[in-house]
Design a binder for these strands. Structure first.
Lengths: 180, 180
DNA sequence: CAAACTGTACCGTCCGGTCGGTTCAGGTCG
DNA sequence: CGACCTGAACCGACCGGACGGTACAGTTTG
């Protein structure tokens, strides 16, 4: 089955791109590097992703898909489930080394319009979050804090130490829970 | 005074770099482009900043200097003055088009270690912020939200609309004020 | 004069993308 | 069955442009 094999290659390529990004930084996501990392040849990679933009776009798609999946795994009955889901996605990704957020940086450097799918997704999420609470501003502050967490982790910015960070996250959680 | 003139050129070069970044994105900060924008020749630029890393490093230095300056302008008596200062720096830069945060992206793409000065500065600020309050976790959440604001603005991510954003910022302010 | 440039030609490298193969599974046809 | 063809998947040499940096011979300015 040819198509299945191609999809398999695409997945390998995407995870290779993630590995490169995690190891060498977003700026080093290069077609040659990703091809080498994936075990494919440059030609083979370009067969799957005809252009670098397509590759980065694929990365973002994968990120959004995983994000949606994690969002779906939040218990249905939680009052601010979308918001909680967002928080969990950040915390979850904290454990993994292959950082998909890198793709965001690489994409925005190459062509800011690549982020459009992310923007519409996020806009929808925000709308959803706001509709799930009476305290829209409070929820927005939580959204901002979550994005701050991503930023911090992405650029290895200081977080006041593990203990304080953990306490801050705990506080964020209770803030979200008390949002109603 | 030769050195003074050099500093003047350096400033022109840096603001040119900011203009390029704001207009064409962080990925387009190139020596030729900045030279052209600044009105200097390429040789002249390289006379001031012998390497691209030096140029980006200079950008970060300028950013940190402006940041410190704005921090200093917050009234002395405010309880969480460092935290308030951080918030104001974000809001202030929202008005200007030349976005220095771009430099952060460009720098992290070229060489993540360029961000080290930013990291130590930020670490110091956080330490300061924590020492100014009894509620360290709450302050950290505020810090995160502020960084989220930066992130959002930098990547043009959706913010739920101007009204909601303004209300969220207002909420953030009161949160900070009530921190004690 | 020396510092602070200008202007330009040039170099080497990196990188995105092209292109002409090659392999191979499967289908067609005599 | 076997000769032939096809098209998907992949290979890797190569090209051209962008970009960082060098070199250096002038020119302006304090």
């Amino acid at each position: 089955m040819p198509l299945a094999k191609s999809r398999n290659s695409s997945r390998r390529i995407l995870s290779a791109a993630r590995a490169v990004a995690a190891r060498e930084g977003a700026g080093r996501i290069t077609i040659d590097a990703v091809a080498k990392e994936s075990g494919l040849s440059k030609g083979g990679l370009l067969y799957n992703f005809p252009t670098k933009k397509a590759l980065l776009s694929g990365l973002l798609d994968q990120m959004l898909a995983e994000h949606r999946e994690l969002l779906g795994s939040v218990p249905e009955r939680h009052p601010s489930r979308t918001l909680r889901g967002h928080l969990e996605t950040v915390l979850r990704s904290k454990d993994e080394d292959d950082d998909l957020s890198m793709a965001v940086l690489a994409a925005s450097a190459l062509d800011p319009t690549l982020l459009d799918p992310l923007r519409v997704e996020l806009a929808g999420d925000i709308e959803c979050i706001v509709s799930e609470t009476q305290d829209a501003p409070g929820a927005m502050v939580a959204v901002l804090a979550i994005q701050g967490l991503r930023f911090q982790k992405l650029l290895n910015l200081p977080d006041g130490g593990a203990v304080l960070r953990e306490r801050a996250i705990e506080r964020l959680r209770t803030m979200i829970d008390e949002l109603e």
